[in-house]
Design a protein around this nucleic acid. Structure first.
Lengths: 236, 236
DNA sequence: CTCGCAGTTTGCGATAGCGCAAAACGGGAC
DNA sequence: GTCCCGTTTTGCGCTATCGCAAACTGCGAG
């Protein structure tokens, strides 16, 4: 019952240093599932019964305060894992995961993790690397929020999204999943109003083209100028 | 040449699931060093030649922008590791580490890490746990910076410091290492002026006692009231 | 083709907190 | 005991950004 073709995932960093046979064994413990656009994959606070590997689509991880404010923790791109609560010894998910596009994921039961890392220590090392990278990114984000103004933060956020999930078009680079002003606000610690104003400004300068949940960084102007702006206060 | 007594570190989470013999072998690869107050242990951008375990003292990790602004990434408490650049596959330190008190550390060469994790997979798992926890804390910090006002953030920061490194006194809980207004500002994304104003306010309300690089949360009022304030906007 | 609504734009007043400047303070060095 | 310097306090004007409110728009459902 090899539901998943190993060749689809063998090249992922997560499985670096894992033999084909081992990979086969690892995949045998997983099942796959499809989540339609805008459906929840797991909710913050729920029992962390599974962890996930995104195969297709895009997933937004968001954290909510008791008073209802949200922030976007990250967007998950294909090939990345998410929902690794067990890796930090947490019994519950610290955030909510929503498919922002029709998405396909591999799902392992959390209970399988200890056995897997014991049999395949590379998994732990590879996961450590991924989590460490995310920690770095978090620190960069904190640095930005502390030292830069909103416009620079938005510029940097868009550039990162374009890099992570950009689709090359004739006019420029389009962010390859639906994203609202509100989402960007929640990534940069501001309000959708301010984001809207900033994007309007850029649009009238010909730096971006944007519409309903859709943003294109115009090449070359947009990308170059935004990079300058995001660097003005010395983002890394 | 067992420089380090295993009994001093055997109980640390980092070494959970490591046999005494293995621990002995691990420690044989380390050397210890003492850093006087205010000395740099490593600088941001330098080659990550070593990673560290803090035995005594306190260390501040700070990140600097090209324009010179700094933020405090974290304070390292005894028993914690720092400088794990290799864990994220970075060749250079992403932050600067300064001893804020006379400090004693164990030092391993970065080059020893791959061999250590191969021989002792628990190390990777334990480190993953630690890094994962720090990632969580980073996310909480981002959430706070996005949704709370400065006073709440400062309240929460002090409570965390008190919990991590608080020394019980008759009057209350003292943060057990020198910390300036500027440091707190750099932890909470504000300016030393604002921190000073806030602390002055709290002092006149009898919630804290503070002086030069010294802060005491007065028990019970200070701790209780600050906890309320930090929770007002729903911090986790 | 039309309607309805989620998402977006825009205006405007309010304000938290910054930035600068200057004075006060206190601990350590000698 | 005195001096000096790093830290802290405090005042004040300024502005980036919020928060609310209202109008607009384009997509998708039917």
């Amino acid at each position: 019952m090899a539901k998943v073709d190993t060749s689809l995932v063998a090249h992922l960093p997560l499985f670096a240093g894992v033999t084909p046979e081992a990979l086969d064994e690892i995949l045998r413990e997983a099942r796959s599932a499809r989540y339609p656009k805008n459906s929840a994959i797991f909710e913050q606070g729920a029992d962390a019964q599974s962890f996930f590997l995104l195969l297709h689509g895009h997933v937004r991880a968001a954290k909510t305060t008791p008073t209802g404010e949200q922030i976007v923790v990250r967007y998950v791109a294909p090939g990345e894992t998410f929902g690794l609560a067990m890796a930090i010894g947490a019994a519950r998910y610290p955030a909510t995961a929503i498919a922002v596009d029709d998405s396909v994921v591999l799902i392992w039961p959390t209970s399988a993790w200890p056995r897997l890392v014991e049999r395949f220590p590379s998994l732990a090392a590879n996961t450590l690397q991924a989590v460490g990278t995310r920690l770095q990114e978090s620190h960069t984000r904190i640095l930005e929020m502390s030292t830069q103004q909103v416009e620079q933060r938005v510029a940097h956020a868009l550039l990162r999204l374009a890099k992570q999930s950009g689709k090359k078009l004739d006019q420029g680079i389009e962010i390859d999943f639906p994203i609202s002003r509100q989402d960007i606000a929640q990534m940069t610690g501001t309000t959708l109003h301010t984001v809207s104003r900033i994007l309007s400004g850029w649009e009238s300068q010909g730096l971006v083209e944007s519409g309903r949940q859709r943003i294109i960084l115009r090449d070359p102007h947009g990308i170059v100028v935004l990079a300058e702006r995001s660097a003005d206060s010395g983002a890394v």
